[in-house]
Amino acid sequence: MRWLTLYSRSRQMPASFAATVIAAVGMWALGRGGGGSGAASASGSGPGDPQFAALALTAGVAAASVGLGGQDLALDRTAAIRWVPRRAAHVLLAAAVVAAVALAVRTLGDEMAGTEFIVRDSAGLMGLAALGAAACGGAYAWTLPVLWTAVGLFVPPPTNTPTRVAAWLLLPPGTPTATWTALTLTATGTAAYALAGPRGRHVA
C-alpha cells in the first residue's frame, strides 16, 4: 500500500484526479445548461450530444496522462521493479478512473452519455495517451488524445470508413469501426507504454 501511495504521489495523481473531476463536472454543467446548441454546427445538436462527454473524457485523460512520465526517468529505469506489468496496469487503471469519474458524474442527473460510450472513449483515449508517452515522453502524452478529439470535433459527420475512424470518439456506441478503433488504440498504447516506458524528456 505504501508503495502505491508513494508511486501515486510521485506521479501527481491527486492533482490529476482533481482535474479529472473538475473537467467532468464542468462539462456536465455546460452540457446541461443548454450549451448543446452552441457548438453543434456540423454535428447537429440535440439530446445526448456526445461532444461534451468526449471533451470531458479528453480532459480527464489529458490530466491523467501527466502521470505517465514519472519524476526521475533514470531512477525509474534503474529501480529493481518489474515495470512492464505495473506500467500496463497504470494505463488501464487510469482509463478506469477517468471512466468511473464520468460515470459517477452522470448520476448527478443528466444523461451525458451511455456507459458503453464512456468506457470505449476513455479506454481508447488513454491508449492514445500511453502511445504518446512512449513516443514523445510523459510531458507530451496529452497531445495525441487532444489532437484526435480536436480533429474528431472539426470534421463533418463521417460517411466512409476513414472518416469514421477519424471521428470514432463521437460515433454512437455500437458502431463497429469506433469500437475497433478504440480497442486497437487501447491495446497498442498499453503495450507500447508497458514495454518501452515513457520516452526521455526533450524540451527541458
Binding site: S16, A19, L55, A59, A62, A63, V66, G138, A139
Partner: peptide, 10 residues
C-alpha cells in the same frame, strides 16, 4: 505544473 499545458489546451 506539468498539468498546466494539457489543462490550458483542453
Amino acid at each position: 505544473s506539468p498539468l498546466t499545458p494539457p489543462a490550458l489546451t483542453v
